[in-house]
Structures are given as C-alpha cells and as structure tokens.
Amino acid sequence: MASSGRTVGGAASLLRARSKLLARLGSERNWADFLFRRVTWLCALLVVTTLGSIALTMAIASLPAFRELGAGFVFGTVWDPARRIFGALPFVYGTVVSSLLALLLSVPVSLGIAIYLSELAPDWLRNVLGFLVELLAAVPSVVYGLWGIFVLSPWLRDSIQPLLSDWFGFLPAFSGPAHGFGMLAGGVVLAIMITPTIASVGREVLRAVPLSLREAALALGATRWESVRIAVLPLARSGLIGATLLGLGRALGETMAITLVIGNRAEISASLFAPGYTMASVLANEFSEATGELHLAALAEIGLLLFVVTVLLNLLARVLVFRVAAGSARGRP
C-alpha cells in the first residue's frame, strides 16, 4: 500500500481508520449487501405469496361446496343451513342491489366533490375540505354501523320512507312497511362510505389533466364549467369510471356497517324497504358458528366469489385510472 508519500497526515484516529479501511480490496463478496437484497426480495415475495395464498386457501376451502352444490349454488334462492340447503342468490342479490344503490346515490355527489376540489374551490378551502373528505374515509366501518342503527335507520323510518311511499308508493321498490333497517339503509350507509374513495381518486384524476388545456378553453371565452366540460372531463372520463369502480369494489366488500343495518334476512324482495342480506354479512354472521363441513364450504365459496369479483373490479379500475395518469404525464410540458 503506497501511503507513505503522504504529506498531509491525519490524527491517530484517521490513520487507524485508514488502516482498517484499506487493508485490501476485499477477497470476499459483500455478504451484507447480498443478504440485504435477498431480504428485501423476500419481503416483496411475501406480498405476492400472501395474495396467492388467499386465493388458494379460499379455493381449497370451498372445494366441497363446488363438488356437492355445483353451479346451482349461485342460483339457489333458499339458504337454510339446518336443512343443508345452500343457495347464495339472496346474498348475491343483496350485495349487488345495495352496492348499485350506493353508486346511484354516491356517484353524482362524489363527482361534484371531485370537480369542486380540483377546479372550483379556493386554495385555502381546498386543503381543509380535502382533509374532511379523508376523515369521512377514516371513520371506522363499525362506527358507521353504530350510527346507522341508532341514528340513520330511525330517521329513514320516520322521515324518508313515509315520503317515498307517499310519492312513489306505486313502485314496488318503495312499497311495504317501513322498518328503517333494510336495503335502503344499507345502500345509504355504503354510499356514505364510498363517497370519499370516489371523490379523492376522482380528484387525482382531474388534477392529472394538464392545466394548459383548461387555460386554452378559458382563453376561448369558456366559463369555468364549460372549460371543465370541454377540456377536462373527456380526458378524465375513463379515470373517473375507474374511480367509480374502486368505490364499487369497496362497497361489495364492505362488511360491518352494512351487516348492522341491512336486516340480515336471506330473502329476495323487490322492495328497498325490506330487509336483505349481503355476501360479506353472511360471512360475518355465520362463519364462526357454522355447523358442518358443507356449511363452512358454502360460506368459503361465497368468500371466494367476493374475492374474485373485487379483485377483477380493482384490476379494471386501476387500469382505467392509470391510463389517465400516464396519458397526462406524457402531455405535461
């Protein structure tokens, strides 16, 4: 080692440090780095295997139900574990109807919020309101459920449902006795819970549209709304659909709040006032006290169905949202 020719020497500590450092270039590989890379790789693998195990576990657990019940499972309208009759249609129906009702109520409001937050609100208000929308998403599901039982349902029963049946009572959807609990309450609670999801993803999508396009429209004499309608919405459309699908995914899988307010009766009824049941709710209610292997397997198959549907929805949503974000990145100066 040619270090003798040094004129600017160091303190003793320096020299010692040097001798430790410069012993040689190292004849061994850097095992610590190798190990570190391996560990981070394993952690990434953990994410992949977790997802894979969920799919696999659910599939294996529901095998007996596949074998014994076949495709009729999804179309059977009677669910009676005591008589070993397992038809999942009431749950599928309840999940689909409550989620669609939630979308119907939530989408216009969420889009309004997204447009307001990204286009119209003054800067100082934007942050505060954005935070409040985040808080709406942060409230735990079971707290919404509690509120749904004791505040929302009575209010629906006493104020909203009588109005609806007075005006629209001729429609089967708004007929029948008003309990408060039921499909309508479930849909409303879900709508509240998915609004922050749709609104905040929608806001991101709108913000991804380049500012120059809005300015171009405004410079042509468009009003604020026209600039949004002409320049922003067409580009953001698929992303907004993606945001809606993310909201739908959340609605389908939502469990606690809706279990507390939907009434939990495995029946298919045309009336939104009647109680219903969802896939997630039946899992929450029956899984830990399920009797018999077939009952467990049938529940697992419902879980598998829920898993597959939400995963597909999420994938589609992410593709749509990503397309807008990526497209705007290209268009940016």
């Binding site: 994410v47 992949v48 977790t50 997802l51 894979g52 969920i54 659910m58 993310l246 995914g249 389908l252 899988g253 939502e254 469990t255 997630a280 899992l283 929450a284 879980g303 829920l306 898993f307 939400t310 995963v311 929805l313 999420n314 994938l315 992410r318």
Partner: peptide, 12 residues
Amino acid sequence: AADVLSGVPSIT
C-alpha cells in the same frame, strides 16, 4: 400484487 391485495375485502 400489492395493489390487488389492498383491494381485497377485509372479511376475506
């Protein structure tokens, strides 16, 4: 996988 996993319903 991480994106998909974050969309899996918590009950599942």
